[in-house]
Nucleic acid binder design. Structure first.
Lengths: 204, 204
DNA sequence: AACAGCCGTTTAGTATTCTAGACAAATGGC
DNA sequence: GCCATTTGTCTAGAATACTAAACGGCTGTT
Protein backbone atom coordinates (compact mmCIF):
# COMPACT_ATOMS: atom_id res chain seq x y z
CA UNK A 1 0.00 0.00 0.00
CA UNK A 2 3.00 2.20 -0.03
CA UNK A 3 3.13 4.12 -3.21
CA UNK A 4 -0.44 4.14 -4.40
CA UNK A 5 -1.91 7.51 -5.02
CA UNK A 6 -5.50 7.72 -3.89
CA UNK A 7 -7.76 9.81 -6.05
CA UNK A 8 -9.01 11.58 -2.98
CA UNK A 9 -12.37 13.30 -2.80
CA UNK A 10 -13.95 12.43 -6.10
CA UNK A 11 -16.89 14.59 -5.19
CA UNK A 12 -19.24 15.26 -8.05
CA UNK A 13 -18.69 18.98 -8.31
CA UNK A 14 -14.94 19.07 -8.46
CA UNK A 15 -14.81 22.09 -10.63
CA UNK A 16 -11.85 22.53 -12.89
CA UNK A 17 -9.14 23.53 -10.49
CA UNK A 18 -7.04 25.33 -12.96
CA UNK A 19 -5.56 28.71 -12.54
CA UNK A 20 -6.22 31.56 -10.23
CA UNK A 21 -7.91 30.66 -7.00
CA UNK A 22 -8.63 26.98 -6.63
CA UNK A 23 -10.37 25.71 -3.56
CA UNK A 24 -8.41 23.06 -1.75
CA UNK A 25 -7.50 21.07 -4.81
CA UNK A 26 -3.83 21.77 -5.44
CA UNK A 27 -3.45 22.59 -1.79
CA UNK A 28 -0.07 20.94 -1.59
CA UNK A 29 1.34 22.97 -4.44
CA UNK A 30 -0.02 26.13 -2.88
CA UNK A 31 1.65 25.37 0.42
CA UNK A 32 4.97 24.59 -1.22
CA UNK A 33 4.95 27.81 -3.19
CA UNK A 34 3.99 29.84 -0.17
CA UNK A 35 6.70 28.25 1.91
CA UNK A 36 9.36 28.86 -0.72
CA UNK A 37 8.24 32.44 -1.10
CA UNK A 38 9.17 32.92 2.52
CA UNK A 39 12.42 31.02 2.06
CA UNK A 40 11.64 28.41 4.70
CA UNK A 41 12.59 24.76 4.72
CA UNK A 42 10.03 22.11 5.59
CA UNK A 43 11.69 21.65 8.96
CA UNK A 44 11.74 25.36 9.74
CA UNK A 45 8.08 25.73 8.91
CA UNK A 46 7.26 22.58 10.86
CA UNK A 47 8.97 23.96 13.94
CA UNK A 48 7.14 27.26 13.68
CA UNK A 49 3.82 25.56 13.09
CA UNK A 50 4.17 22.92 15.76
CA UNK A 51 3.94 19.92 13.44
CA UNK A 52 6.54 17.54 12.06
CA UNK A 53 8.47 17.99 8.86
CA UNK A 54 6.96 14.77 7.55
CA UNK A 55 3.51 16.28 7.75
CA UNK A 56 4.60 19.25 5.68
CA UNK A 57 6.17 16.94 3.14
CA UNK A 58 3.07 14.75 2.85
CA UNK A 59 0.77 17.73 2.51
CA UNK A 60 2.94 19.32 -0.16
CA UNK A 61 2.88 16.08 -2.12
CA UNK A 62 -0.91 15.95 -1.71
CA UNK A 63 -0.53 12.51 -0.19
CA UNK A 64 -2.88 13.51 2.62
CA UNK A 65 -5.77 15.90 3.07
CA UNK A 66 -4.89 17.72 6.27
CA UNK A 67 -7.47 18.41 8.92
CA UNK A 68 -8.61 21.94 9.42
CA UNK A 69 -6.77 21.98 12.70
CA UNK A 70 -3.49 20.93 11.13
CA UNK A 71 -3.82 23.30 8.22
CA UNK A 72 -4.49 26.09 10.67
CA UNK A 73 -1.38 25.19 12.62
CA UNK A 74 0.72 25.04 9.47
CA UNK A 75 -0.51 28.36 8.14
CA UNK A 76 0.14 29.78 11.58
CA UNK A 77 3.74 29.85 10.40
CA UNK A 78 2.82 32.60 7.98
CA UNK A 79 0.92 35.85 8.34
CA UNK A 80 -2.04 34.49 6.38
CA UNK A 81 -5.48 33.06 7.15
CA UNK A 82 -6.89 29.81 5.80
CA UNK A 83 -9.42 31.66 3.70
CA UNK A 84 -6.77 33.94 2.23
CA UNK A 85 -4.54 30.96 1.63
CA UNK A 86 -7.25 29.19 -0.33
CA UNK A 87 -7.94 32.23 -2.46
CA UNK A 88 -4.32 33.15 -3.06
CA UNK A 89 -3.71 33.94 -6.66
CA UNK A 90 -1.21 31.42 -7.91
CA UNK A 91 -1.47 32.50 -11.51
CA UNK A 92 1.78 32.67 -13.40
CA UNK A 93 3.42 35.73 -12.01
CA UNK A 94 4.18 38.68 -14.18
CA UNK A 95 7.64 39.13 -15.57
CA UNK A 96 10.00 40.09 -12.78
CA UNK A 97 13.53 40.23 -14.07
CA UNK A 98 14.72 42.18 -17.07
CA UNK A 99 18.11 42.00 -18.71
CA UNK A 100 19.76 45.24 -19.71
CA UNK A 101 18.99 44.66 -23.37
CA UNK A 102 15.34 44.05 -22.55
CA UNK A 103 14.89 47.62 -21.36
CA UNK A 104 12.95 49.74 -23.75
CA UNK A 105 14.92 52.79 -24.67
CA UNK A 106 13.09 56.00 -25.32
CA UNK A 107 15.29 58.65 -26.86
CA UNK A 108 13.91 62.14 -26.78
CA UNK A 109 15.93 65.18 -27.72
CA UNK A 110 18.86 65.59 -25.35
CA UNK A 111 17.75 62.93 -22.90
CA UNK A 112 17.40 59.18 -23.05
CA UNK A 113 14.99 57.08 -21.02
CA UNK A 114 15.37 53.39 -20.54
CA UNK A 115 11.98 52.10 -19.44
CA UNK A 116 11.57 49.03 -17.29
CA UNK A 117 8.68 46.96 -18.56
CA UNK A 118 6.17 47.84 -21.19
CA UNK A 119 3.15 49.50 -19.63
CA UNK A 120 4.88 51.91 -17.34
CA UNK A 121 1.93 54.22 -17.41
CA UNK A 122 -0.62 51.93 -15.79
CA UNK A 123 1.86 50.97 -13.13
CA UNK A 124 1.88 54.43 -11.60
CA UNK A 125 5.07 54.41 -9.58
CA UNK A 126 7.77 56.80 -8.48
CA UNK A 127 11.54 56.34 -8.80
CA UNK A 128 14.29 56.95 -6.24
CA UNK A 129 18.08 56.82 -6.00
CA UNK A 130 19.65 54.35 -3.59
CA UNK A 131 23.11 53.30 -2.56
CA UNK A 132 24.09 50.05 -0.85
CA UNK A 133 27.47 49.80 0.90
CA UNK A 134 29.30 46.44 0.73
CA UNK A 135 27.53 43.84 2.81
CA UNK A 136 24.38 45.88 3.11
CA UNK A 137 21.31 43.73 3.69
CA UNK A 138 17.66 44.58 4.25
CA UNK A 139 17.51 41.66 6.63
CA UNK A 140 16.65 38.02 6.84
CA UNK A 141 13.08 38.87 7.75
CA UNK A 142 11.74 39.43 4.29
CA UNK A 143 10.04 42.68 3.40
CA UNK A 144 6.42 42.45 2.42
CA UNK A 145 4.04 45.37 2.03
CA UNK A 146 1.45 46.89 -0.23
CA UNK A 147 2.48 48.53 -3.47
CA UNK A 148 4.99 47.81 -6.19
CA UNK A 149 8.73 48.22 -6.54
CA UNK A 150 11.20 48.47 -9.38
CA UNK A 151 14.73 49.62 -10.01
CA UNK A 152 17.86 49.63 -12.15
CA UNK A 153 21.34 48.78 -10.99
CA UNK A 154 23.75 51.61 -11.86
CA UNK A 155 26.98 50.29 -10.42
CA UNK A 156 28.14 47.46 -8.23
CA UNK A 157 26.28 44.19 -7.73
CA UNK A 158 22.81 43.76 -6.24
CA UNK A 159 21.61 40.42 -4.94
CA UNK A 160 17.83 40.46 -4.97
CA UNK A 161 15.48 37.80 -3.63
CA UNK A 162 11.84 38.01 -4.68
CA UNK A 163 9.22 35.40 -3.96
CA UNK A 164 11.85 32.81 -3.18
CA UNK A 165 13.74 33.43 -6.44
CA UNK A 166 17.20 34.92 -6.07
CA UNK A 167 19.14 36.75 -8.77
CA UNK A 168 22.40 38.63 -8.96
CA UNK A 169 21.91 41.84 -10.91
CA UNK A 170 24.76 43.74 -12.52
CA UNK A 171 24.78 47.29 -13.84
CA UNK A 172 22.13 47.73 -16.53
CA UNK A 173 19.92 44.95 -15.17
CA UNK A 174 16.60 45.78 -13.56
CA UNK A 175 13.67 44.41 -11.57
CA UNK A 176 9.96 44.96 -11.14
CA UNK A 177 7.68 43.13 -8.69
CA UNK A 178 4.67 43.45 -6.42
CA UNK A 179 5.80 44.43 -2.93
CA UNK A 180 3.55 41.81 -1.37
CA UNK A 181 6.00 39.21 -2.58
CA UNK A 182 8.52 38.79 0.23
CA UNK A 183 11.76 40.39 -0.88
CA UNK A 184 15.27 41.19 0.26
CA UNK A 185 18.11 43.37 -1.01
CA UNK A 186 21.78 42.55 -0.48
CA UNK A 187 25.08 43.92 -1.69
CA UNK A 188 27.44 40.91 -1.88
CA UNK A 189 30.25 42.89 -3.50
CA UNK A 190 33.17 44.93 -2.18
CA UNK A 191 32.17 48.28 -3.62
CA UNK A 192 29.10 50.45 -3.29
CA UNK A 193 26.05 49.39 -5.26
CA UNK A 194 24.05 52.18 -6.81
CA UNK A 195 20.50 51.54 -7.84
CA UNK A 196 17.87 53.76 -9.31
CA UNK A 197 14.81 52.29 -7.71
CA UNK A 198 11.19 53.19 -7.33
CA UNK A 199 8.18 52.35 -5.22
CA UNK A 200 4.49 52.95 -4.95
CA UNK A 201 2.48 54.53 -3.56
CA UNK A 202 4.55 57.70 -3.88
CA UNK A 203 5.88 58.50 -0.43
CA UNK A 204 7.84 61.67 -1.17
CA UNK B 1 -12.25 7.17 25.83
CA UNK B 2 -15.85 7.59 24.95
CA UNK B 3 -17.16 10.88 26.07
CA UNK B 4 -14.08 12.89 26.78
CA UNK B 5 -13.81 16.17 25.02
CA UNK B 6 -10.38 16.71 23.62
CA UNK B 7 -9.13 20.26 23.62
CA UNK B 8 -8.08 19.89 20.05
CA UNK B 9 -5.34 21.99 18.50
CA UNK B 10 -4.15 24.05 21.41
CA UNK B 11 -1.93 25.97 19.05
CA UNK B 12 -0.31 29.01 20.57
CA UNK B 13 -1.85 31.59 18.35
CA UNK B 14 -5.49 30.67 18.74
CA UNK B 15 -6.76 34.19 18.48
CA UNK B 16 -10.00 35.07 20.17
CA UNK B 17 -12.60 33.53 17.93
CA UNK B 18 -15.34 35.94 18.73
CA UNK B 19 -17.72 37.56 16.34
CA UNK B 20 -17.70 38.24 12.67
CA UNK B 21 -15.39 36.08 10.68
CA UNK B 22 -13.51 33.55 12.73
CA UNK B 23 -11.06 31.20 11.08
CA UNK B 24 -11.87 27.61 11.66
CA UNK B 25 -12.55 27.89 15.35
CA UNK B 26 -16.31 27.67 15.81
CA UNK B 27 -16.44 25.73 12.60
CA UNK B 28 -19.10 23.41 13.96
CA UNK B 29 -21.42 26.22 14.89
CA UNK B 30 -20.93 27.80 11.51
CA UNK B 31 -21.85 24.59 9.74
CA UNK B 32 -24.94 24.08 11.86
CA UNK B 33 -26.17 27.60 11.20
CA UNK B 34 -25.51 27.30 7.49
CA UNK B 35 -27.31 23.99 7.32
CA UNK B 36 -30.36 25.31 9.16
CA UNK B 37 -30.43 28.36 6.94
CA UNK B 38 -31.00 26.02 4.06
CA UNK B 39 -33.52 24.00 6.03
CA UNK B 40 -31.63 20.72 5.69
CA UNK B 41 -31.38 17.90 8.20
CA UNK B 42 -28.04 16.31 8.99
CA UNK B 43 -29.03 13.28 6.96
CA UNK B 44 -30.16 15.31 3.96
CA UNK B 45 -26.94 17.25 3.91
CA UNK B 46 -24.94 14.08 4.42
CA UNK B 47 -26.56 12.46 1.41
CA UNK B 48 -25.92 15.49 -0.77
CA UNK B 49 -22.35 15.76 0.42
CA UNK B 50 -21.50 12.09 0.19
CA UNK B 51 -20.65 11.62 3.86
CA UNK B 52 -22.54 10.06 6.75
CA UNK B 53 -24.89 11.86 9.09
CA UNK B 54 -22.63 10.96 11.98
CA UNK B 55 -19.84 12.97 10.44
CA UNK B 56 -22.05 16.02 10.17
CA UNK B 57 -23.10 15.58 13.77
CA UNK B 58 -19.55 15.25 15.05
CA UNK B 59 -18.35 18.26 13.08
CA UNK B 60 -21.22 20.40 14.29
CA UNK B 61 -20.40 19.47 17.86
CA UNK B 62 -16.74 20.33 17.19
CA UNK B 63 -15.84 16.86 18.36
CA UNK B 64 -13.57 16.45 15.34
CA UNK B 65 -11.53 18.69 13.10
CA UNK B 66 -12.52 17.57 9.61
CA UNK B 67 -9.98 17.13 6.88
CA UNK B 68 -9.96 19.59 4.05
CA UNK B 69 -11.31 16.89 1.82
CA UNK B 70 -14.24 16.15 4.09
CA UNK B 71 -15.06 19.79 4.65
CA UNK B 72 -14.98 20.31 0.93
CA UNK B 73 -17.38 17.43 0.45
CA UNK B 74 -19.73 18.73 3.12
CA UNK B 75 -19.75 22.26 1.78
CA UNK B 76 -20.37 20.76 -1.64
CA UNK B 77 -23.92 20.45 -0.40
CA UNK B 78 -24.23 24.21 -0.51
CA UNK B 79 -23.40 26.80 -3.14
CA UNK B 80 -20.45 28.09 -1.14
CA UNK B 81 -16.68 27.69 -1.17
CA UNK B 82 -14.50 26.81 1.79
CA UNK B 83 -12.97 30.26 1.86
CA UNK B 84 -16.36 31.93 1.76
CA UNK B 85 -17.60 29.59 4.43
CA UNK B 86 -14.75 30.52 6.73
CA UNK B 87 -15.29 34.22 6.22
CA UNK B 88 -19.06 34.09 6.49
CA UNK B 89 -20.33 36.81 8.71
CA UNK B 90 -22.05 35.07 11.58
CA UNK B 91 -22.60 38.24 13.55
CA UNK B 92 -26.02 38.59 15.09
CA UNK B 93 -28.21 39.29 12.16
CA UNK B 94 -30.04 42.53 11.78
CA UNK B 95 -33.65 42.73 12.76
CA UNK B 96 -35.77 40.78 10.30
CA UNK B 97 -39.34 40.69 11.51
CA UNK B 98 -41.40 43.70 12.49
CA UNK B 99 -44.81 43.71 14.17
CA UNK B 100 -47.44 46.09 12.84
CA UNK B 101 -47.01 48.41 15.77
CA UNK B 102 -43.26 48.52 15.21
CA UNK B 103 -43.68 50.25 11.88
CA UNK B 104 -42.74 53.85 11.92
CA UNK B 105 -45.60 55.94 10.65
CA UNK B 106 -44.91 59.05 8.68
CA UNK B 107 -47.98 61.16 8.16
CA UNK B 108 -47.76 63.79 5.45
CA UNK B 109 -50.74 65.78 4.30
CA UNK B 110 -53.28 63.50 2.66
CA UNK B 111 -51.05 60.44 2.58
CA UNK B 112 -49.57 58.26 5.28
CA UNK B 113 -46.39 56.21 5.02
CA UNK B 114 -45.62 53.37 7.33
CA UNK B 115 -41.89 52.79 7.09
CA UNK B 116 -40.35 49.38 7.61
CA UNK B 117 -37.23 49.73 9.71
CA UNK B 118 -35.46 52.85 10.82
CA UNK B 119 -32.85 53.83 8.26
CA UNK B 120 -34.83 53.42 5.10
CA UNK B 121 -32.61 55.89 3.36
CA UNK B 122 -29.35 53.95 3.52
CA UNK B 123 -31.09 50.79 2.46
CA UNK B 124 -31.85 52.11 -1.00
CA UNK B 125 -34.62 49.81 -2.14
CA UNK B 126 -37.71 49.93 -4.33
CA UNK B 127 -41.18 48.69 -3.42
CA UNK B 128 -43.65 46.60 -5.45
CA UNK B 129 -47.17 45.27 -5.16
CA UNK B 130 -47.71 41.51 -5.10
CA UNK B 131 -50.61 39.13 -4.82
CA UNK B 132 -50.43 35.46 -3.81
CA UNK B 133 -53.33 33.13 -4.61
CA UNK B 134 -54.18 30.41 -2.04
CA UNK B 135 -51.50 27.76 -1.98
CA UNK B 136 -49.02 29.89 -3.87
CA UNK B 137 -45.44 28.93 -3.17
CA UNK B 138 -42.15 30.20 -4.52
CA UNK B 139 -40.87 26.64 -4.32
CA UNK B 140 -39.00 24.25 -2.09
CA UNK B 141 -35.74 25.28 -3.70
CA UNK B 142 -35.09 28.36 -1.67
CA UNK B 143 -34.47 31.67 -3.37
CA UNK B 144 -31.08 33.23 -2.87
CA UNK B 145 -29.69 36.18 -4.79
CA UNK B 146 -27.94 39.50 -4.40
CA UNK B 147 -29.78 42.47 -3.00
CA UNK B 148 -32.29 43.08 -0.26
CA UNK B 149 -36.01 42.48 0.10
CA UNK B 150 -38.80 43.81 2.27
CA UNK B 151 -42.58 43.96 2.28
CA UNK B 152 -45.82 44.50 4.15
CA UNK B 153 -48.77 42.14 4.23
CA UNK B 154 -51.93 43.95 3.18
CA UNK B 155 -54.48 41.17 3.33
CA UNK B 156 -54.51 37.42 3.76
CA UNK B 157 -51.77 35.40 5.40
CA UNK B 158 -48.16 35.13 4.27
CA UNK B 159 -45.91 32.32 5.44
CA UNK B 160 -42.34 33.47 5.07
CA UNK B 161 -39.19 31.45 5.62
CA UNK B 162 -35.91 33.37 5.88
CA UNK B 163 -32.59 31.87 6.86
CA UNK B 164 -34.27 28.80 8.29
CA UNK B 165 -36.64 30.84 10.45
CA UNK B 166 -40.31 30.59 9.52
CA UNK B 167 -43.03 33.08 10.46
CA UNK B 168 -46.68 33.54 9.68
CA UNK B 169 -47.36 37.17 8.89
CA UNK B 170 -50.82 38.72 9.11
CA UNK B 171 -51.99 42.04 7.68
CA UNK B 172 -49.96 44.90 9.08
CA UNK B 173 -46.88 42.75 9.74
CA UNK B 174 -43.76 43.23 7.67
CA UNK B 175 -40.31 41.79 6.84
CA UNK B 176 -36.88 42.95 5.80
CA UNK B 177 -33.88 40.72 4.98
CA UNK B 178 -30.83 40.31 2.79
CA UNK B 179 -31.76 38.35 -0.30
CA UNK B 180 -28.70 36.14 0.06
CA UNK B 181 -30.44 34.47 2.96
CA UNK B 182 -32.36 31.56 1.43
CA UNK B 183 -36.03 32.46 1.48
CA UNK B 184 -39.45 31.23 0.44
CA UNK B 185 -42.93 32.75 0.21
CA UNK B 186 -46.11 30.75 0.73
CA UNK B 187 -49.79 31.54 1.03
CA UNK B 188 -51.19 28.91 3.42
CA UNK B 189 -54.65 30.52 3.57
CA UNK B 190 -57.84 30.21 1.50
CA UNK B 191 -57.98 33.76 0.22
CA UNK B 192 -55.60 35.90 -1.79
CA UNK B 193 -52.69 37.38 0.07
CA UNK B 194 -51.74 40.92 -0.86
CA UNK B 195 -48.31 42.19 -0.03
CA UNK B 196 -46.59 45.44 -0.71
CA UNK B 197 -43.04 44.26 -1.20
CA UNK B 198 -39.80 45.70 -2.42
CA UNK B 199 -36.46 44.63 -3.74
CA UNK B 200 -33.07 45.95 -4.65
CA UNK B 201 -31.40 46.77 -6.90
CA UNK B 202 -34.27 48.60 -8.58
CA UNK B 203 -35.33 46.49 -11.55
CA UNK B 204 -38.16 48.59 -12.92
C1' DA C 1 38.02 11.49 1.08
C1' DA C 2 35.61 11.97 5.19
C1' DC C 3 32.83 14.35 7.92
C1' DA C 4 29.07 17.37 9.54
C1' DG C 5 24.89 19.60 8.48
C1' DC C 6 20.72 20.47 6.14
C1' DC C 7 17.48 19.09 2.67
C1' DG C 8 13.09 16.44 1.21
C1' DT C 9 11.25 11.82 1.35
C1' DT C 10 9.68 7.61 3.33
C1' DT C 11 8.15 4.20 6.85
C1' DA C 12 6.17 1.96 11.15
C1' DG C 13 3.27 2.99 14.71
C1' DT C 14 0.02 5.95 17.07
C1' DA C 15 -3.79 9.17 17.16
C1' DT C 16 -7.63 10.91 14.89
C1' DT C 17 -11.23 11.03 11.58
C1' DC C 18 -14.93 8.70 9.24
C1' DT C 19 -18.38 5.00 8.32
C1' DA C 20 -22.14 1.90 9.28
C1' DG C 21 -25.46 0.96 12.24
C1' DA C 22 -28.08 1.21 16.55
C1' DC C 23 -30.38 4.18 19.94
C1' DA C 24 -33.78 7.44 22.27
C1' DA C 25 -36.53 11.49 21.68
C1' DA C 26 -39.64 14.20 18.89
C1' DT C 27 -43.14 14.57 15.25
C1' DG C 28 -47.15 13.54 12.42
C1' DG C 29 -50.97 10.51 10.75
C1' DC C 30 -54.56 7.32 11.55
C1' DG D 1 -53.02 5.79 21.95
C1' DC D 2 -50.21 3.52 18.45
C1' DC D 3 -47.42 3.20 14.59
C1' DA D 4 -44.23 4.94 11.17
C1' DT D 5 -40.83 8.65 10.16
C1' DT D 6 -37.52 11.70 11.09
C1' DT D 7 -34.31 13.89 14.02
C1' DG D 8 -29.72 14.25 16.46
C1' DT D 9 -26.57 11.50 19.09
C1' DC D 10 -23.54 7.81 20.09
C1' DT D 11 -20.41 3.50 19.41
C1' DA D 12 -17.28 -0.20 17.28
C1' DG D 13 -14.45 -0.84 13.61
C1' DA D 14 -12.28 0.61 9.19
C1' DA D 15 -9.80 4.26 6.97
C1' DT D 16 -6.93 8.12 7.23
C1' DA D 17 -3.91 11.74 9.20
C1' DC D 18 0.01 12.55 12.02
C1' DT D 19 4.40 11.62 14.67
C1' DA D 20 9.00 10.06 15.41
C1' DA D 21 12.81 8.31 13.40
C1' DA D 22 15.05 6.72 9.85
C1' DC D 23 17.08 7.07 4.81
C1' DG D 24 19.61 8.86 0.67
C1' DG D 25 21.07 13.04 -1.62
C1' DC D 26 23.46 17.33 -1.66
C1' DT D 27 26.80 21.16 0.04
C1' DG D 28 30.49 22.98 2.25
C1' DT D 29 34.63 22.32 5.39
C1' DT D 30 38.73 20.05 6.92
Amino acid sequence: MAGDFRRAHSSAQDAGAGGGETDGQDLGVRLRELRKMYGLSQRELAKRAGVTNGTISLIEQSRISPSIGSLKKVLGGFPISIADFLTLDMSPRAKVFYQAKELREIAGGDVSFRLVGRDTRDRAIQMMHERYVPGADTGEEMLSHAGEECGIVISGVLELTVGGECRRLVPGDAYYFNSRLPHRFQNPGTVDCVVVSACTPPSF
